[in-house]
Amino acid sequence: MNEQQLKEYLITLAQEYGSKWNEYEDRVREQSEAETAAMPKFADAEEQFAWFKENKPTDWHEELSKWVGPLFDRYCTDKKRVYGGKNVRSFGFPAKFNGIGSPVETSVDLKNQNRAEVYFKTETSFQDEYLFVLLRKAGQWKIDSYKGRRFGDTKWDNRIL
Rank of each mutant, 00 (worst) to 15 (best):
M1P: 00
E3A: 06
Q4C: 06
Y9H: 04
L13A: 10
A14Q: 01
A14T: 02
E16F: 05
E16A: 08
G18C: 03
E23V: 07
Y24P: 02
D26G: 14
V28F: 02
R29L: 14
E30M: 08
Q31A: 02
Q31R: 06
E35Q: 09
E35N: 11
T36N: 10
A37T: 10
A38L: 09
A38H: 12
P40L: 13
K41Q: 12
F42D: 14
A43N: 11
E46M: 08
E46Q: 08
E46I: 08
E47N: 11
E47H: 11
E54N: 07
T58S: 15
T58W: 14
W60E: 00
E62D: 07
S65Y: 13
K66M: 00
G69R: 01
P70I: 15
L71K: 02
F72I: 15
R74F: 15
T77F: 12
D78V: 08
D78L: 13
D78T: 06
D78I: 09
R81N: 07
V82S: 12
V82Q: 11
V82H: 13
Y83N: 13
Y83Q: 13
K86Y: 04
K86I: 09
V88P: 05
R89Q: 07
F93K: 14
A95W: 03
F97C: 06
N98F: 03
N98V: 06
I100K: 15
S102E: 13
P103D: 15
E105A: 15
T106H: 01
D109T: 02
L110K: 11
K111D: 05
Q113N: 13
A116L: 07
E117N: 14
V118Y: 01
V118L: 01
Y119L: 13
E123Y: 15
T124D: 01
T124I: 09
S125R: 05
Q127I: 14
D128G: 05
L134N: 03
L135F: 06
R136E: 03
K137Q: 03
I143P: 12
D144W: 11
S145A: 15
K147M: 03
G148A: 08
R150E: 11
R150I: 15
T154N: 14
W156F: 09
W156N: 13
N158Y: 12
I160F: 03
L161Y: 00
